[in-house]
Design a protein around this nucleic acid. Structure first.
Lengths: 142, 142
DNA sequence: TTATACATTATAATTATTCTAAACTATTGA
DNA sequence: TCAATAGTTTAGAATAATTATAATGTATAA
């Protein structure tokens, strides 16, 4: 889902009815220069800051999952306690800052292409992603 | 924590009192040939199968976290809905079978060493891990 | 426009995990 | 050996993230 576009049409193309809640959420997610890494809670907070009318938490969940299923959002696993989503759906890796709990994109070009020599037999590879955990030099981390 | 050893001494060395619950959990986790990938729930189920007396769920959490803090278990992020732990604490990668939700070790030698060309300034890299998501060839996965 | 299928909502339910406070046990040292 | 104490276990309550429910509302097709 590209930025600065008509989300009513984009949603319809994706087979999702363009309700005002969905349009608003798309504007928040995709009308931006940089990739947005967020938890549902981050997004819900942003909605209530930006918006006069409120969107129910259930709708935020429903909408994010609907958009994700259509392939316009990617879920990323870092911790086990929260779901992170990423508006950048292209193949790319991540830095995870253990000090700030922030997720930062790591471009494909920053890491040479990864070759899995032996795959599990009978299975196909859906994705290969690298997570680089970083922390401040002067702190202790496990 | 090596296998086929006296866990009473091992626990004591790690600064953990060797209670019978901890010893039993160590036996289940470390008296095995192959790496064990598990969620707390998997482990709790295994305990209640193997054991006459039961161990409280809180104790399973406490013990796993205590052992993990001492560096004998590694936590792995895949989904956001559950915590997976790994008895293999050496640097290595993983396959994640999206059909069975199973985690499989991927040896370092199966992937050429990964060079992060540009790191975040002022941060040091704590770990670089690859997660390869696989699924049956004849099924749809996003 | 109206029927219908899909969405939204508040709230309840669920699940994984952590907290609490009382009962218990390993260890220390007299 | 035996109490003191510091650390541990436990059941059950509390919390947090997420999902289900069922009633109300809305977009769309006929």
């Amino acid at each position: 889902m590209t930025k600065n576009c008509n989300f009513i049409d984009k949603l319809r193309e994706a087979g999702l009815r363009p309700t005002k809640q969905r349009v608003k959420i798309c504007e928040i997610l995709f009308n931006r220069e940089k990739t947005f890494h967020f938890t549902i809670n981050d997004l819900a907070k942003k909605i209530s800051e930006d918006l006069n009318e409120k969107i129910s938490l259930a709708t935020v969940y429903n909408t994010v999952h609907a958009i994700q299923k259509k392939g316009y959002l990617k879920e990323i696993a870092i911790n086990s306690d929260k779901s992170y989503f990423d508006t950048n759906t292209t193949a790319h890796h991540h830095f995870y800052d253990e000090d700030t709990h922030e997720l930062i994109d790591c471009d494909q070009s920053n890491i040479d292409s990864i070759n899995v020599k032996n795959n599990i037999t009978g299975k196909k590879i859906n994705s290969v992603e690298v997570l680089i955990k970083v922390a401040s030099d002067n702190q202790n981390h496990n």
